[in-house]
Design a protein around this nucleic acid. Structure first.
Lengths: 205, 205, 205, 205
DNA sequence: TATGAATGAGAGTTCATTCAT
DNA sequence: AATGAATGAACTCTCATTCAT
């Protein structure tokens, strides 16, 4: 019944245009949020007409999803690859540090983007599902990176989750510095200490 | 521009009406989010007219702010009082436990509410500011509770912040259980271990 | 989920407004057809805003249905009542004549309206269903009117249907006079002759 | 304003292309109606580009007109020829029967097409005019077929018109069977009876 | 004071038509 | 000659806010 298919661009000019829409969307959604961005703004920012937007995307939500998939693919995945390429065996301290740096990088460079994604993540089921895959991506990258003789496999999921969570917290704090009385260096040292303590093999947590 | 001042209700009937709007708003915003709730729905749920809503609140955002202030005042503050009333000197393990229970309580009973607040928190600057005060409230309650001979004052802000953050994480996981492979008991034990380790006086973190 | 109910007007001013929308809709739909009429035009013609239109009707199709129900109720039903009130026993000639007059009246006064209804009738299933009831209304009025000792019950449905159809044809021709070479008086006489012949008891058709 | 003239295809390939557009249009317009069919769908179904469509037709309505002219030429005219080729002198019963069969054929095989044409016929003046010619075509074919010693010339136009109308009604009822309680065999017999009665020479109607 | 009908700007989306390639 | 991506005006519908009653 629905004959008005969404165009899948093949030619270079078209791909470029689709990308422009995606990046314009990413920018606006990140800065102003999903509900405060409209399709005319996206079209204008991408330098195309609204009609063109709707020939590449079935609706506004579709632009949103494409924008954040693009972000995660082009930004997060490279970071994770770096993590996986760490020379092994790796010092625990180094691993935790690298992890933290990764999230600081992520937030410092794309704080608004990451935040907007978090905002929608639990608001729209469809978007939550899409994003779940990417969290899994991070978590499994961490599992691989932590795969090391000095780390017990016991309760590994929970340890990885805490590593992920605390690195995330530090990243957020670096980017937004919500809490003026927090010394970021101190916080980092404490997190590293806790995680190193948690991950060490001889402590059976 | 706006000549019609927002009324500050003095009479009992008026206060009751304002409260009904606030609780109706809280309920709807929590269940469906800010952008999917409209003022007619709030008025109807509160049993008043839309006009009345606008005689107590200057706009929709104002209802939102009042709703979440009400929530934090009537729900969070009592929890914090409990924390402050802990008999001292308190065992470190007990303190951390109590803290964690507090957040689990909060999330389990009001998960949608807390989530919606988090969603808007960084989307709307005006709302972010208002909420900051309440986070400070939590943090200072923790400072008081942790005020104890066995805990160094050194880098205390950062320690409190981590206590707050990790308790929050555990609360969220209890309420939503996003990560199916996480054993909540194990996670709780690990968090307690880390925090106890961090807070102990002799470890100079 | 759908809290935005369509308002059911009780006050006189509101009913009047709803009626104005209905009549404006009827007028425009009749003159220009469903697809060539837009909601802004209807609102303007009714002297209200588009928002008001949508507080009385759930969508454009709903206005359409209401408009034509209004037409049929306020125009067709009175005509049918007249038919039913014919003094009995009635001369067959008189009955057929009355029937024909009824349709001529209908078309001459509301030719565009009746035509538009016919156009949509088979195009939109929802509208077709609604209209079916009114055709039944006409047919059963005819059955009652024809209920007469001089008419056999045998194959009555088919006879009534032909009475209805031929009166309809004559009505159309009166209103639009598509066929310039047709003498309406002659046509009427022929139709009357055929129907009288068909309906007479002694001819067993 | 319109500098790009509509091409009149001479080459075989071009004619074929134009025909493909016409038949695709006929198919889609018949199935989904004029307003629910768009030019992209027609182009796709015809295996050409939208641009090509607009080099053969000046606008969407032009495709519509061409489609239905094509239908009437290729489908209706052969039926009429058959009618004209009836061996004479012909029995009145046979003639009426043939006529009825012709319409039943028409509707049963092309009910959606005929219906869609009827729908637009009075909605768009331009289309109404075009169609008038074809109705005249039918009527004059009937005049020729009825040209017979047993039929008075008196009031012939009106008689032909009724023959046409009643055959049409029966055709519609055969194709759609809107009225469940109508026995098609009975209806046909009644119509035949009425028409035979009307057309007979000695009855001076 | 309270009402709730009314407003109308602005949202997302479609599609006949054009024109650079 | 043919393409089909691009256009943008026009569509239907929503909702925060106002104001006559």
């Amino acid at each position: 019944m629905n004959d008005t298919a969404v165009r899948e661009p093949i030619q270079k000019r078209s791909i470029e245009k689709k990308t422009r829409i995606i990046t314009a969307g990413l920018d606006l959604f990140s800065k102003k949020g999903y509900y405060n961005t409209n399709t005319v703004q996206i079209a204008k920012a991408a330098g195309v007409s609204t009609g063109t937007v709707y020939s590449y995307f079935k609706d506004k939500k579709d632009i949103y999803i494409a924008s954040f998939e693009y972000f995660l693919d082009s930004y997060l995945r490279p970071l994770l690859n770096e993590l996986e390429r760490l020379p092994k065996p790796v010092d625990m301290q180094v691993l935790v540090d690298k992890c933290i740096d990764l999230f600081i990088d992520l937030y410092v460079n794309s704080k608004q983007t990451v935040n907007e994604l978090g905002r929608m993540q639990q608001s729209e089921p469809e978007i939550m599902q899409r994003f779940a895959a990417y969290e899994d991506m991070i978590l499994s990258a961490l599992v691989k990176a932590v795969d090391h003789p000095s780390v017990t496999k016991k309760n590994l999921s929970e340890k990885i989750y805490l590593l992920y969570t605390l690195a995330d917290v530090l990243g957020q704090e670096h980017a937004f510095h919500y809490h003026r009385n927090i010394d970021l260096e101190v916080l980092r040292r404490q997190i590293t200490t806790m995680l190193t303590y948690l991950l060490q093999k001889d402590k059976e947590n």
